[in-house]
């Protein structure tokens, strides 16, 4: 039997612990947001003056004030388009197979372990692979296609892992109910499970594509260029991307190039955010169109 005073004391300690935990979590969120805010403010302050239509619509130049990012911007859009084209259907397809259809035997366990490990392989390794397989063996050259395929490989494991999580979160009762009213397995997956899992899958796709858009190392490895005075006209054209251009500008001695780099970062962020916004929009649209 404990006295009321002791009980109150214990309660106070427990509430105190809870408050400390809350404070820590809040601080963690604040730090993350503060870092992001500082980054955004610094980059915007340094680069906003340089941002203009001329900057977006010009090719690289030795004169910082004439240099632009047209080639890099279009290279990035081309590469991301094809990367998504390859990686998203493949990744979601693999996830559906592994989650909905694959038998649980040693083979599927080996595949599963491998995919999880692949998600942690350093990006430069994918660059070496891309150089050997896509650039040399398949003779695609240093093209948009070779770059996209390399990037697709890089983000495939991320999409698969995220999509599987999404599929797994769909309650089994949904599947059972669909089967019970006579749906085939295909119909169950196609009309019930996949739509229900799409929001989570889209989140995975956003994360994966956001990673791909900022990668430099594998592209340098496969020989993506830096000075390209034209925009790609086909998937087999040579190209450059925003991070390579930004990286080069940062390392130049003339301080004006650093402003260009900041402006380039703003453009990269805008591309990234609009990509994410599109994905969020699609996610909400899918969520709205689901009735249950």
């Amino acid at each position: 039997m404990i006295g009321a005073a002791a009980l109150r004391r214990r309660m106070a300690v427990r509430r105190g612990t809870g408050a400390v935990f809350l404070a820590l979590c809040f601080a963690g969120t604040c730090i993350a947001i503060a870092v992001l805010a500082v980054l955004l403010v610094t980059v915007t302050r340094d680069g906003i003056d340089r941002l203009s239509w001329g900057f977006i619509n010009s090719f690289p130049s030795r004169h910082p004030e004439q240099a632009g990012i047209k080639a890099a911007l279009f290279g990035t859009l081309w590469m991301m388009g094809f990367t998504a084209l390859f990686a998203v259907p493949l990744g979601i397809g693999a996830a559906i197979y592994l989650e909905e259809f694959a038998p649980h035997n040693w083979l599927s366990r080996v595949i599963e372990t491998n995919i999880n490990n692949l998600a942690g392989v350093p990006s430069i390794v994918y660059g070496i692979l891309g150089l050997a397989v896509f650039v040399r063996a398949m003779d695609l050259g240093r093209s948009v296609l070779a770059g996209s395929l390399t990037m697709a490989l890089l983000i495939l494991p991320i999409i698969i892992v995220a999509s599987r999580e999404g599929l797994r979160a769909v309650p089994p009762s949904i599947r059972e109910a669909a089967i019970a009213v006579g749906a085939t397995r295909w119909q169950t997956v196609r009309f019930q499970v996949l739509p229900a899992a799409l929001p989570a899958i889209m989140t995975g796709v956003i994360l994966a594509l956001s990673r791909a858009i900022g990668e430099t190392a594998p592209l340098i490895m496969i020989g993506a260029l830096l000075f390209v005075p034209f925009t790609p006209g086909s998937p087999l054209d040579r190209f450059t991307v925003l991070p390579i251009q930004i990286f080069n500008w940062v390392s130049r001695p003339q301080p004006e190039f650093a402003e260009n780099a900041a402006a380039g970062i703003i453009v990269l962020l805008v591309v990234l955010l609009s990509m994410n916004a599109l994905a969020v929009f699609l996610r909400n649209w899918f969520e709205r169109s689901r009735r249950w």
Partner: peptide, 27 residues
Amino acid sequence: ARMGGMRLLRKPLAFSTGILAAVLAAF
């Protein structure tokens, strides 16, 4: 909140084509 009545969606899934259409259109 989340699991209620069911509906067999008839709309074609456009998850990848949705993103791509916009990006590719720019090309």
